[in-house]
């Protein structure tokens, strides 16, 4: 018998599943590898520097805050800080200066995560909170997007251009006809592969979908949130497109451009900040889809996924309070 020959006594159950937080986080990291690879291909050095800095600074802040401010044992290797780092990097342009990334990481880890008590306690997605902080603080740097391929060997000196969403927003505002605008943006095949300007992780729908498929198979996420977000976006933009194809872009464009797929698969599905029940998750996803479309089509910003997710994050406690799983033996009564 182990220690001091004493029997161990504990409450049941006495066996446990093999799942752990680490495994989940490492799976998420693995699922982000294809998207990261694509950004290396299109943005090269910049993508490497930005991602590296974001991950390292998130880990360092997590360690320092846990150790010296909260005075708890740092749980660095649960992988959650690394996930936040990669997601933050995925949400910024690849030519962002190092110090800004560090500031973003500090906001993400320090304010959005640790100040609420660390992993599992944060109401808002930390990476998105960091991203939004950067966006409103440094709007110029956060919206100067390096051109894909051309800026492969450049970092701060990358040549920049507008994202497809930016081109669309600006053009429609200036009254350019839709036909001309569609010529200015890459064709949909290239957009699907990721050959366009944008945040470094959001560009390739293909790579993101691959990662999403892996997460679905490994049961890290369920289909409810991604599917409800994407189908809401398709339905809403499709409806507007049918009403007025000259004023509104087609739904496929809205799917492929911007961060909606990244958001739907990797950001909105963050377990900590999404509802617990499948029905709640669908409500959450539909909300994100709607807010995203409203911002994109009628708002001042060309892109609205991160705002949409953060806004819906705030509704999660409410959704969880009112959307409960159906209990066994709740309604049905037989004679």
């Amino acid at each position: 018998m182990s220690p001091n020959n004493l029997l161990t006594v504990s409450h049941s159950p006495h066996v446990f599943g093999s799942e752990s937080v680490q495994k989940i986080m490492y799976r998420v990291l693995l699922a982000m590898v294809p998207a990261f690879a694509v950004s290396l291909i299109f943005f090269g050095v910049g993508a490497l520097i930005v991602t590296g800095v974001a991950v390292v600074s998130c880990l360092v802040f997590e360690y320092l805050i846990a150790r010296f401010l909260l005075k708890v044992k740092p749980t660095l290797w649960d992988g959650s800080a690394a996930v936040t780092g990669v997601l933050l990097a995925f949400n910024v342009p690849s030519n962002l200066p190092v110090w800004m990334i560090v500031v973003g990481s500090l906001v993400a880890i320090g304010i959005a995560k640790m100040s609420f008590g660390g992993l599992g306690k944060n109401p808002f997605n930390p990476a998105l909170a960091g991203r939004i902080f950067l966006l409103v603080s440094f709007p110029v740097q956060m919206t100067s997007w390096p051109k894909a391929v051309e800026s492969r060997f450049a970092y701060l000196d990358a040549t920049t251009g507008a994202t497809p969403l930016g081109i669309m927003k600006e053009g429609l505002k200036n009254g350019q006809p839709m036909v001309d605008l569609l010529k200015d943006i890459p064709d949909y095949g290239q957009m699907f592969l990721g050959n366009m300007s944008g945040s470094l992780g959001e560009i390739s729908a293909l790579a993101l979908l691959l990662g999403g498929l892996y997460l679905l198979i490994k049961k890290v996420i369920t289909w409810h949130i991604p599917v409800s977000i994407l189908s809401t976006v398709v339905l809403f933009t499709g409806l507007m497109w049918l009403i007025n194809p000259d004023k509104f872009a087609d739904p496929l464009f809205h799917l492929l451009a911007g961060g909606v797929i990244l958001g739907a698969i990797f950001m909105a599905t963050d377990m900590v900040t999404s509802p617990m029940t499948p029905v709640g998750q669908i409500i959450f996803g539909v909300g994100i889809g709607l807010i995203t479309c409203l911002i994109r089509l009628f708002g001042a910003y060309p892109e609205g996924v991160s705002f949409a997710i953060l806004i819906m994050n705030a509704f999660v406690p409410l959704i969880d309070k009112y959307v409960k799983p159906k209990r066994f033996g709740e309604v049905v009564k037989h004679g």
């Binding site: 599992g120 377990m271 900590v272």
Partner: peptide, 8 residues
Amino acid sequence: MNCIRCSR
């Protein structure tokens, strides 16, 4: 560890 609200 902390609950990560995975809903498992």
